[in-house]
Design a protein around this nucleic acid. Sequence first.
DNA 1: TTGTACGCGTTATCAC
DNA 2: GTGATAACGCGTACAA
Lengths: 349, 349
Amino acid sequence: MPGELNVGAGERGRRPATIYDVARLAGVSHMTVSRYLRGTTGVGAESGRKVARAVALLDYRPNRMARIMRTRRSDRIAVILPDATGMMPTRLLTGAARAAHEAGYLLDLVALEGDAAARAERIHTLLRPEYVAGIVAFTPLHAWTGDRAPTEMAVPVVVDGEYDDNMRAQGVLADATPAAGIVRHLAGLGHRRFLHVAGPQAWASARNRRAVYEATVAELGLESYGVAPGDWGAEAGRRAAGWLPGSGVTAVFAANDRTAFGVVQGLRELGIDVPGQVSVFGWDDDEIGRCLVPALSTVSVDRERQGGDAVRRLLALLNGQEPAAPPEAGALNRLVVRDSTGPAPTRAV
Amino acid sequence: MPGELNVGAGERGRRPATIYDVARLAGVSHMTVSRYLRGTTGVGAESGRKVARAVALLDYRPNRMARIMRTRRSDRIAVILPDATGMMPTRLLTGAARAAHEAGYLLDLVALEGDAAARAERIHTLLRPEYVAGIVAFTPLHAWTGDRAPTEMAVPVVVDGEYDDNMRAQGVLADATPAAGIVRHLAGLGHRRFLHVAGPQAWASARNRRAVYEATVAELGLESYGVAPGDWGAEAGRRAAGWLPGSGVTAVFAANDRTAFGVVQGLRELGIDVPGQVSVFGWDDDEIGRCLVPALSTVSVDRERQGGDAVRRLLALLNGQEPAAPPEAGALNRLVVRDSTGPAPTRAV
DNA sequence: TTGTACGCGTTATCAC
DNA sequence: GTGATAACGCGTACAA
């Protein structure tokens, strides 16, 4: 039994109130307080009121560490960041943090650094359920788990933009609408011969966009000149622009805005007009696209929601529910047609 | 005394080994193990060896939660991200995460969302030393603490890019070299009349760049046409470009690359050649700058180190040391002169 | 409905 | 140098 109990609430430098302090002030046992706080059944109305008053008076907050230790259930969700260079939308992380917070979880930021051994060690630590309730990765898994499937891991794992095998079909479909919409839009403008500048194929989102691009081109009886390799960066787009002269391609679909930006710059250097001779479509609705001349046609993505959804899928797993279906494409993505796309030219480059 | 002890290491589904398991296997008391693990003095050589063997055999790792609970010292560092829209360099976060990890800390991502009351509540929770050892903010403080100074807060706080009042002078100096270098470089090319497109003045880094710009311009006897407002975004730069016709300005220093990018686009729309008529300098070494036509002159920043340094400053505070001086500018920043800057034209726009 | 005893895994304290 | 014992704050099990 604790010896000295805290009494004052506003005392400066005082240790935070414990459940015992609340119990004493409310004139009940600490278990009544515990039950009341967790919403467990079995607390009298009168006791409840007294506890509530004491909690407010003492500004009591449960000690999460103690709770975790006792229940052996962590309240932390680990977010694994891409180790690759590059920018990450802040909104993605804040959206994830909000979703976690709303469910009473905290977000731990984890960067996997060092060599394979160091990574393995880090993962090994992470996998202990007492530390992390689950993991959300905004990056492909392969880099750090090797061939181990997420389902084999000790704690639930959600990889955003990726879908485990059972859901791959759904995943592709979910991501399909915008990519298919882009091709359809361009086809509607008279374009017949396309080039896709892909993202790194380790990323499911990049693979999906490419797959849907190819499927839609085939479905509509159009022609794909090919798929240029990319890495989400601008330079890849610039290099891809070099493929165009003499190719007969009139429309380029880049995996993201930075790459599309590179394509536009590369075309400019080649003296090819956008969208007069070649139309370019991006993906991300990065602000730079709005300022680009010509303004970039792109796909607007609700990053905040995307981050939140990833966490919510994990939470569903944690609660033993079927993982929620990936968000519908329409809710997340929206085609934004600007000036970088136009009618197909009568004569291709 | 624990009843059942874990014996096997590789057992599947087995609970992790505790300090008692190690003690039993090593044939010592759990306190000897504890002392050995923490590197406390007072462990015999023989005991140490036995403990080390047992630890390795059982794959034992201390339970952080239990440790935190007992010591009342959290192992978590909270990172506060800018709530403003935008991208954040992943490297900044991975650098911070690495530094924290090396010191045995975990990085918690905290997004302050909601209204003022919700933020205050969140902060209030954060301030409990049992939860967070300290806070690193990659965003100005004002937005969330109001007027409360970091030093008044219950846990140490480091704001990256910002410097508390005692160090303001140092801070400006530390950030000065590149901004002054830019002006000097442009002056060396014959430019005499400048425009600065600033970042949001809530950010110390933006204020510093502006202040150093103005100081250097004055020091060299040059002329500043003015300072255009900005928000780190491209559109602000584009608007600022509208200031130029008839201004006599031949060189623009933008607070960051995105803004510089906007300036270049805006000038293009106005039919003003870069760098023929106007030179443009950015800051960040964003990859898009390399692909821009003309390639953007900029300041290369070691983001990983910047993130790590922020955490290390916090760690110094935690250890009761004088906070380390802000990193020297030369180590972090490097001028990268590309094609967007050139000799001053004989006749200004 | 409420309360008592105990354990979670660790560190602090104080003996030996 | 080493070890027994008592916290840390909470939840579970069981008795009242």
